[in-house]
């Protein structure tokens, strides 16, 4: 049968709304590959309407309160529940960034890149519905939240009925639309390590309009020591099969005296590491060109924020 593509939610499915993480993992153990987990639903329901996905079972996370909310950890890090909406995360970060930028007492004071990514994330309605965990688990190369989280060395916890593992986000993305999570595993926590002093971050997204999916996006984090970049991360989206770090560019940057010329050079280096394709949003050549520009600009912006 040809796909009807009516954009109506035509396929039938059974629907579960478990109340606890354990119940959800039990359902996943039982239905596995035939089930899809639904958080905000803003991607999954579109995929189903387009008949790209036809799960027999939907497991909604909407009633599992343990998967929501943002917690400051004792050592200063942040624990973000995967069903936290993009808007809720944005508001949390915005209110904690109200402190002067130079005030590094706030454990979230250098999370500006994540705040910017949330702010440029699709439309207001989608921001209110979409979740940070859904954005990661869809494993889109264009996931806006992925580059800043990669640049903060985020970790994620995956739970099944019988197992639990915590791994760096760098290992999470496998291919377009594919993460390392097994069909019986549920993303239960996202961890950010404690903010470092003298650190700034920035996120830049190039898109036709801000509500659109990015053509290229980049997030950087720099820790300064005097005039040197003592530590740095550079991560990009929409430039490879998965969100990625530009590790050679990072190595070239660390330990160097920061300058405009250095930022230019690092931007070009990062552009050499990416593997963009041409698609409906941009050509490979454009992505290659603009990646160098936005990595440079993000570095300059993040550096300014370290002072």
């Amino acid at each position: 049968m040809l796909p009807t593509n009516t954009h109506l939610l035509y396929p039938e499915f059974d629907y579960f709304a478990p109340l606890t993480i354990y119940e959800a993992t039990e359902l996943l153990a039982q239905y596995g590959e035939d089930a899809r987990i639904m958080a905000g639903g803003t991607d999954l329901l579109v995929q189903m309407k387009m008949e790209r996905q036809q799960p027999s079972y939907i497991i909604s996370l909407a009633r599992i309160s343990a998967l929501g909310g943002i917690k400051r950890l004792e050592h200063g890090g942040l624990e973000i529940g995967p069903t936290t909406t993009i808007r809720a995360l944005y508001q949390y970060l915005t209110s904690s960034l109200q402190l002067p930028i130079s005030n590094f007492q706030s454990p979230t004071s250098n999370l500006q890149s994540l705040q910017e990514a949330c702010n440029w994330f699709s439309t207001i309605q989608i921001m209110h519905m979409a979740t940070i965990g859904g954005n990661l688990c869809n494993a889109s190369p264009a996931a806006d939240s992925a580059p800043p989280l990669l640049a903060f060395d985020a970790q994620v916890t995956l739970k099944s009925k019988t197992s639990e593992r915590t791994l760096p986000l760098t290992e999470f993305f496998i291919a377009p639309g594919k993460s390392i999570a097994r069909p019986d595993e549920l993303l239960t926590h996202i961890y950010l390590p404690a903010s470092l002093p003298d650190t700034g971050s920035a996120f830049i997204k190039i898109a036709r309009v801000t509500a659109d999916i990015s053509q290229v996006c980049a997030a950087v984090r720099i820790t300064r020591e005097g005039n040197c970049a003592q530590d740095a991360r550079i991560a990009l989206g929409s430039v490879a099969p998965t969100p990625m770090r530009a590790t050679v560019a990072e190595r070239d940057l660390i330990g160097q005296t920061f300058s405009l010329e250095l930022a230019e050079h690092i931007g070009k280096q990062a552009a050499q590491e990416i593997k963009p394709i041409s698609d409906v949003r941009a050509t490979r050549e454009y992505r290659q060109h603009i990646a160098a520009v936005i990595v440079r600009d993000a570095l300059l912006r993040a550096w300014e924020r370290t002072q």
């Binding site: 709304a17 639903g41 909407a62 207001i124 309605q125 209110h128 519905m129």
Partner: peptide
Amino acid sequence: NTPLNACLMLAWL
């Protein structure tokens, strides 16, 4: 009081 897209919300929710 939150603006949402009703086309992407299951009525049961």
